[in-house]
Design a protein around this nucleic acid. Sequence first.
DNA 1: ACATTCTATTGACAGATGTTCAATAGCGCC
DNA 2: GGCGCTATTGAACATCTGTCAATAGAATGT
Lengths: 206, 206
Amino acid sequence: MFGVTTATPSPAPRTRLSPAQRRTQLLELGVRLLATRSLDELSIDLLAEQAGISRGLMYHYFGGKQGFYEAVVQHAADDLYARTAPPDEGEPMERLLASLAGYVDYVVGNHAGYRSLVKGATAGNDNLRAIYDTTFAALAERFFTSDPGGLVIPDTPAVRLVIHAWQAMVEDLVLTWCDSPAGLSRADLLQVITASLPAIVDTLPG
Amino acid sequence: MFGVTTATPSPAPRTRLSPAQRRTQLLELGVRLLATRSLDELSIDLLAEQAGISRGLMYHYFGGKQGFYEAVVQHAADDLYARTAPPDEGEPMERLLASLAGYVDYVVGNHAGYRSLVKGATAGNDNLRAIYDTTFAALAERFFTSDPGGLVIPDTPAVRLVIHAWQAMVEDLVLTWCDSPAGLSRADLLQVITASLPAIVDTLPG
DNA sequence: ACATTCTATTGACAGATGTTCAATAGCGCC
DNA sequence: GGCGCTATTGAACATCTGTCAATAGAATGT
């Protein structure tokens, strides 16, 4: 009243959530904010302000900026893994193709966030790289376990090395395609992705 | 004397170098330090201490931490490009293979630094990504200009997209191979690299 | 209804790090 | 041997991360 309550929109009505609610709220906010910023371009101040909480609460939940970033990356990685789960039914090869299509659609639908988090994770500390490596290893595992013994792809160190490289290629391919499709349709893209895997494996000596 | 000149090894005898000398000294020191650290793990304090200069001089030469990092990445990129230059003589295909072998050897010989700077650059701001993109585009250009009209690889947007992805694959392949060769020799690695390029291009529709 | 307990949340403080700039001092030149 | 140019410094400043004892919302029991 009396015109002294200045432009401050809301005097911060302290809202008290359950730890799980607060945690997911902050993680999802983090995914959104980090889609257009790198980690060191995101200050705890901005994050806390956007979340409507104090800086201290961030440290209570995640221990620090680094811990927060790791939690965000892990959160997004789990999301990616779940959303690209192969369907329960169908031929083994069909299920793999469906999973790959799911991956493409996921990346295309979130290319800004996906690019930012993946690049940030691979450039980060040991924990971050471990999250990235584990997730990509889990995705690759589908090629070996989805059809035990029935796949044409043998499980050897050299093949695993090549599949890792193929995954890096697919990641780059989809992200670059988002920026400039180069006249290729989504079906064309999937065609290149699926056909290149055996093509690359075949280049191995022996 | 008199036991008061404490443990300080050298009271910093101010050495005055030419701007070019100082700049390259700092850049090479940066390449070395950043091979085992990420940018935000490297403080200006440490950098200045290792270089034997004051913090202020860093800002005089590079304007700030970010500018320094960009200069280091550009320096390393120029080095990479020069060291992988194809030989002046020989068959076009031979020269490309020699260039690829040069790339492999360069990465193997500096995998720590190469990995750190590449990941840091791709995760960085627009300037850093521009340096990375420009360098990789220049490397790719060799495939189109080294033998004008004589190569079996046509120059279309789709082909450029796929070659970009192939470059990402090669980068991952070599770096992963450094960590665990998976029973493959250097010759095997080069075999996979060279054979995979046409194999991938052939997966394009049409 | 009220008091009590539990804990999610805060705000002020301490420490570290990036950044600026006027002052300093090494080196070539006359 | 003095002078001027400029490479270099060091201290002050600004911003940000991280810490912790104090605070307050909500459930529980009486």
